Simulated assay, not measured.
Amino acid sequence: MSTAAVVVTVLAALWVGFSAFSVFARAKWVVEPLAEYGVPRAAWPWLGAAKAAGAAGLIAGLFVPVIGVAAGVGLVVYFTGAVVTVLRARSYKHIPFPLLYLAPVVVAMALA
């Protein structure tokens, strides 16, 4: 695995991990849009857990590649779903946010 792949994977994992932490901490700038999109509060911890598991899976994938691929695929599905949720809520100004999390995961997978 190249140095670039390791660096991008670690950065993507940290970025997604930060997103998970933001959900768990109920950061205002995260939970207000979730409420606006109609995402039930009961789902928020599960969304944070999915992101945290994906971030951990990306790191584990540096040692066991199949885990990294599974985590990457899961995160791509997750953030694609986030884009769809934002589009369904017609909150077009928020579309870039899930894409900012999706892009590094896609790049990490492409480099691995």
Rank of each mutant, 00 (worst) to 15 (best):
S2P: 12
T3K: 11
A4V: 09
A5G: 12
V7E: 04
T9L: 11
V10W: 04
V10F: 06
A12G: 01
L14D: 00
L14H: 01
L14C: 03
W15A: 09
W15I: 07
W15K: 09
V16Q: 03
V16W: 04
V16I: 11
G17W: 06
G17M: 08
G17L: 07
G17K: 14
G17E: 00
G17S: 06
F18M: 11
F21G: 06
F21W: 15
S22I: 03
S22E: 12
V23A: 01
V23L: 04
F24Y: 14
R26N: 08
A27R: 11
A27P: 00
K28H: 05
W29P: 00
W29V: 12
V30L: 11
V31H: 06
V31L: 15
E36Q: 15
Y37H: 08
Y37A: 02
Y37N: 00
G38S: 08
V39T: 09
P40N: 03
P40H: 11
P40F: 09
R41W: 10
A42C: 05
A42I: 15
A42G: 14
A43W: 14
A43N: 09
A43I: 07
W44P: 02
W44N: 03
W46F: 15
L47A: 14
G48D: 05
G48Y: 12
A49I: 05
A49L: 15
A50Y: 09
K51W: 05
K51Q: 13
G54N: 03
A56C: 11
A56F: 04
L58H: 07
L58R: 14
A60G: 06
A60L: 15
A60F: 13
L62E: 00
L62F: 01
F63I: 10
F63V: 12
V64Q: 08
V64N: 01
V64M: 01
P65M: 05
P65D: 01
V66T: 14
V66Q: 11
V66S: 11
I67A: 13
G68Y: 02
G68E: 00
G68M: 05
V69W: 10
A70Y: 03
A70H: 03
G72K: 03
G72H: 00
V73N: 00
V73T: 01
G74H: 09
L75K: 12
Y78P: 01
F79E: 02
T80V: 14
T80G: 15
A82H: 10
V83A: 06
V84R: 14
V84F: 12
V84L: 14
V84Y: 11
V84A: 11
T85A: 15
R88T: 01
K93P: 00
K93G: 07
H94Q: 14
I95G: 03
I95H: 07
F97T: 05
P98L: 12
P98M: 11
P98A: 10
L99G: 04
L99Y: 09
Y101M: 13
Y101K: 09
P104K: 06
V105R: 10
V105A: 05
V107I: 14
V107P: 06
A108H: 07
A108Q: 06
A110L: 14
A110D: 03
A112R: 15
